[in-house]
Simulated scan of single mutants.
Amino acid sequence: MSLSSTTDRAYWLAWSQVRGIGSVLMKRIYQAFGSMSEAWTAMPSDLQEIEGIGGQTLEAIRQAQREVEPLSLMAIHEHNNLNFWTPSDREYPQLLWEIPDPPAILYYRGHLTNWNERNTVAIVGTRRATPYGKRWTKKLVTALAKSGFTIISGMAEGIDGEAHRACLEVSGQTVAVVGTGVDQIYPHKHKSLYEQIVDSGLVLSEYPQGTPPDKKHFPARNRIIAGLSRVTLVIEAPERSGALITAYQANEYGRDVYALPNSIEVNEAKGCLKLLGKGAQAISGVDELLEALGMLPNLDTPAPAIAISALPPLQQNILQAIGFGEPVGLDWIVEQVKMPSGEVLGALTHLELVGAIAPYPGMRYQRLV
């Protein structure tokens, strides 16, 4: 990890300690300054231009600036929380950064630190799953995992647990997003499941290690499940359900939502009927679902072979400037190629479309070919 990356991580952490600043405002601050370290030393008048920063919040920022030394805070924090990502890290999920309220700190435990974000499916549902719901969860997850999809859920009782287990049974990739610290097992009856996920998958949380269960954490956790996933499948959900929160958030984020139909007499599925009535797509079978997911834009489509010499000179120069290393920022690319930023952005968009580069949070880019 480069020194600049370490510094960026420290300032994300420092900003996360400021009272009254949440995920939405953190992203606005970053977008306004392009660097959390620059924002930390910004003039109060510049900070107040950001929507959501008034006099009270500004005073909290100034107090934190007096009391917090970011690099020292980082050293202390890493001692207790070695594994975490910030939006400055290349491992931070791009899909998650796209939502309006991405977590500034994403703690993790496990061995799955890289997955194809275009093939991510959230499986959510009631804690009181019916035999019908369990059967369809296993059927759908087995097919999805065998087809290369990463299964994301919340490790709760019921549908969540069934989804993780079905994925692990076929050696698929699964990610559990929890409302506790990543070192906590909740519910405790999922101790064996938790250990299996840590061994071959990933446990994620925005809460530091040692954080116990708290009912207000779980709705916030649901937005991460929705944000990490291209598609959300609701298997069973009563009319008041955390799974419905996840589905509504996924819809707000512009992601596809599917629901499994069931009898109107089944209380555990009335939420799914509600979703279908609001425009969610019906799950009508395994093959039909796989076909529908295969038609999603950019879904695991192999990139065509790219003839670098056939690209326009500016695009060739940009690829040369980016090089084969860590992602680099837009400002640095503009400086290297000595062209207006508007033209560079247009060229970057084309290079992204043809699969020559990959975008990362903070307008950073990595060369792929």
Rank of each mutant, 00 (worst) to 15 (best):
P238Y: 06
K215T: 08
E265G: 11
E265V: 10
A259P: 11
I308G: 08
P213S: 04
A243T: 08
P297I: 06
T211C: 09
S192G: 07
K278N: 15
E291R: 06
E291F: 00
L275H: 08
F218Q: 02
E195G: 04
K216S: 06
I283K: 02
I235A: 07
H217W: 01
E239F: 00
I306E: 10
M295R: 14
V257I: 10
L228I: 12
L204A: 12
H190I: 12
L260A: 09
A269P: 14
K278Y: 13
Q196D: 11
R230C: 11
I283Y: 10
G277H: 13
G294E: 01
L296I: 01
H217Y: 08
E291Y: 00
S284H: 07
I308A: 11
I197D: 10
I225Y: 03
I308M: 07
K216Y: 04
P313Y: 07
D199R: 05
K274T: 15
K274F: 13
S241R: 01
Q196L: 01
L319N: 05
V234L: 09
A307L: 10
E265P: 04
S205R: 02
P212I: 01
A243E: 01
M295V: 00
Y248A: 12
D214K: 10
P302Y: 03
A282T: 13
I245K: 08
E195M: 13
R221S: 10
A310F: 05
N317F: 04
A282M: 14
K270V: 15
H217T: 01
A280Q: 06
E236M: 09
A303Q: 14
R255C: 02
A321P: 05
V203I: 15
K191D: 11
G227C: 12
L314Q: 14
Q315L: 05
T232W: 05
L202E: 04
E236C: 02
S205E: 04
Q316V: 11
K215Q: 08
